[in-house]
């Protein structure tokens, strides 16, 4: 197996007294894509939000366990630093409506007050948009508002915005569920490319999508990790009966 980048040990998540995740333990590997699957409400979103500490936005949320990134428990780190290393792309594309495409890509720098020269900025923008597969579509009108793009383009802009921060890990929460099949295919192709630069963790309901683009799959059910392994093996010879039934479409 390849290099571990993120090591999750005994992760428990609660909303007030209601336990959502139960003792989840698994690893993510560098430059691989891992799918998080499971029926609605099983805790997929909660799980990936814990990884970049977005769960903290809800004051009722509580987490125990360890999430180790480079020998450091992210749960003890400054949440702002964690979020700069671990980017997130949401179900609905959310470019900043007051900003141009150009400024959207640079938003992480601008908002955090990190100064860059004009050349550096141009380079970051081009590089990030190229990695997000959007450069050729938008290079002639970088100063138009990001919200004028189509849904799929907006989602790739959001990916570029995350990549611009040189994130090591990219969390994607059902990034294609609001997109048409063509835009979905675009994003799927993109994920294959992105693996060169980042580690991908993607929540998806779409089994064929998981099978097409991911190397590993984790199957969650009612907040418990039922099965984790290489996507190909998990899809062809699932070890667990529950996984088999889910893959056969018998629930979820």
């Amino acid at each position: 197996m390849s290099n571990k980048i993120l090591d999750i040990k005994n992760l428990n998540a609660f909303y007030q007294n209601h336990q959502i995740l139960h003792d989840v333990t698994l690893n993510f590997f560098s430059n691989k894509a891992t799918a998080i699957m499971g029926p609605s409400g099983c805790g997929k979103t909660t799980f990936i939000r814990c990884i970049n500490r977005m769960h903290e936005l809800d004051p009722k949320a509580k987490v125990t366990g360890e999430i180790i990134l480079h020998n450091q428990n992210t749960l003890d780190m400054d949440s702002i630093l964690v979020r700069r290393k671990i980017g997130m792309v949401f179900q609905r594309a959310n470019p900043f409506p007051t900003m141009s495409i150009y400024d959207n890509v640079l938003a992480g720098y601008k908002l955090n007050g990190i100064k860059k020269s004009r050349d550096e900025k141009d380079e970051i923008v081009q590089d990030s948009l190229e990695k997000a597969g959007l450069w050729h579509e938008v290079k002639d009108f970088l100063h138009r508002k990001g919200t004028l793009l189509s849904g799929g383009q907006q989602q790739r802009l959001c990916i570029a915005r995350s990549l611009a921060m040189k994130t090591e890990i990219l969390l994607l929460d059902e990034p294609t569920s609001a997109l048409d099949p063509y835009a979905t295919a675009n994003i799927e192709e993109l994920i294959e490319e992105l693996k060169k630069d980042v580690t991908i963790i993607i929540v998806t309901h779409n089994m064929s999508q998981a099978a097409r683009v991911t190397d590993y799959t984790a199957f969650l059910y009612e907040g418990k990790l039922i099965e984790f392994g290489e996507t190909e093996k998990l899809f062809t010879v699932p070890k667990h009966k529950m996984t088999e039934e889910y893959l056969a479409g018998r629930f979820g």
Binding site: N52, M54, L57, I80, L81, V82, R83, R84, G87, M88, F90, R92, N94, P95, F96, P97, A107, G108, L111, N112, C158, R161, S162, M165
Partner: peptide, 14 residues
């Protein structure tokens, strides 16, 4: 939309 706030926070913006 709250998603806008989350987008910014997820970039490590205070």
């Amino acid at each position: 939309p709250k998603t806008l706030k989350e987008a910014s926070l997820a970039l490590g913006v205070p």
